[in-house]
Design a protein around this nucleic acid. Structure first.
Lengths: 243, 243
DNA sequence: GGCGATGATGAATGATATTTATTAGTGCCG
DNA sequence: CGGCACTAATAAATATCATTCATCATCGCC
């Protein structure tokens, strides 16, 4: 066939790992700035210093690139606070820690959180994907907390751990949509405290009694309010649940 | 310029209202079946018996068409159960009614619910849109329930109504994602009961006591289970209704 | 029964993701 | 050393839609 061009071509000779990470870094920026649909492969290629076609050597298509970028972010998220969490004692403090952490993660990376909620999770191939497993591990910490709380006799034995998980993470996501659309802000400490109190009352046999642990306390910006609320609570034991 | 075609054209002469409703009906089907992105204007036009260009006489673009379709659906949803709800007494029953209704609406129209959650709500122009107002009205009923419950002394005075709203609707949406992706199902009655009990305990001064009202009971698909659970609850009459 | 006005038509346009023919490098074998 | 085959980068071409617009069918009016 006829030659397509007579121009001399510049060839990018960086090693593949480097080009991949350049592409992913560029993609992360562009997806975050413009969202999935408005992010152009051309933009990403330009910012990564490669040409469109090169992206397709490493990623099957635009969506796979998105998935890889979000996976990478989520993996970091998951590791970040594992040892901190291990030090927290008591159901109330543990729930609060996880709520606070989630609120903080969303606030730190609203654009990627949005991509996760809006583009990744609703997709029909989400279940079975790596991100599904990662997210499961992430939210499962709360399930374990509830199970442990039941086992130790602190929480009602008829509590459904997965329902608590949906209650907590659902509430957080619902509450953060305004922020995710760029229309407002929230105080993670204050919000975490309010959510935790409400949920804890729903699952505990007694009102919160665990001492505020230092790990958690350090995260607080509204400690005074918290202690006031803890003082109010009437300590009335509950009847055992249905079934 | 040169004529574009020598073929005789068939002209659709239905009245505009009819063509608009045909287009919206077709769009509703196609969006529901394929989702926003994979729905082609060509498909919609074909199914509506009009030509692509005609759609643009009535709708500025594909997205406006989507918004109008979802608005239409949501408006019906909002009216449907207003008088039913008015008959429900007691915070527990009211919360349960709203939760049950939402779970049922999602289950009845998963595709449109998805479009609402995935395409409409995250958009930057959502706030200020008609759907924002409609959704606000929809969820505000729960806010009113909580406010009334506080006023009547049934619920804790330090309860945040908007937090309860986010807790409840967030939980429901989180819990329904599996179903929305077409991967499972749930029993609205059972789920509503579980959510309501958990949330109610978090906000109530005492354990749930309202009798199951007939309006709610009629909606049940798992009546037996519900009544068993109700049998357990200590029968203590409630303070009078809202306001 | 011609004459504008109205609005329906569907081919053209434009924007983008993706594919592919082509070519720049790279190293091996003679 | 110098062609030669292989790999991988390039950018032009293609494919897929949403959207626009020049044209024309139809209707009401005279």
């Amino acid at each position: 066939m006829a030659p397509r061009s007579a121009l001399k071509r510049q060839v990018n000779r960086l090693p593949p790992e480097r080009r991949i990470s350049d592409i992913m870094a560029a993609a992360k920026q562009v997806f975050a700035e413009k969202g999935y649909n408005d992010a152009l492969i051309t933009d990403i290629a330009l910012r990564a210093g490669v040409v469109e076609g090169s992206i397709y050597r490493f990623f099957a298509n635009k969506r796979e690139l998105l998935v890889k970028v979000v996976e990478h972010w989520f993996e970091e998220l998951l590791q970040e606070d594992a040892e901190q969490f291990a030090a927290v004692r008591g159901s109330w403090n543990q729930i609060r820690f996880l709520v606070y952490n989630h609120l903080t993660s969303i606030r730190r990376d609203p654009a990627l959180s949005r991509l996760m909620f809006q583009e990744i999770r609703p997709a029909p191939d989400y279940r079975g994907s790596r991100l599904f497993d990662l997210n499961r591990a992430y939210t499962h910490r709360l399930v374990d907390v509830v199970k442990a709380g039941i086992a130790s006799g602190e929480l009602r034995p008829d509590t459904s751990p997965s329902l608590v998980r949906d209650l907590v993470f659902g509430c957080i996501e619902h509450r953060t949509w305004t922020f995710l659309r760029g229309e407002g802000d929230y105080d993670p400490a204050e919000t975490a405290e309010a959510i935790t109190n409400l949920v804890y009352r729903g699952v505990a046999l007694d009102e919160p009694t665990s001492p505020m642990e230092s790990v958690v306390a350090r995260l607080e910006t509204a400690t005074a309010r918290l202690e006031a609320a803890a003082g109010i609570a009437p300590a009335k034991p509950n009847s055992p649940g249905p079934r």
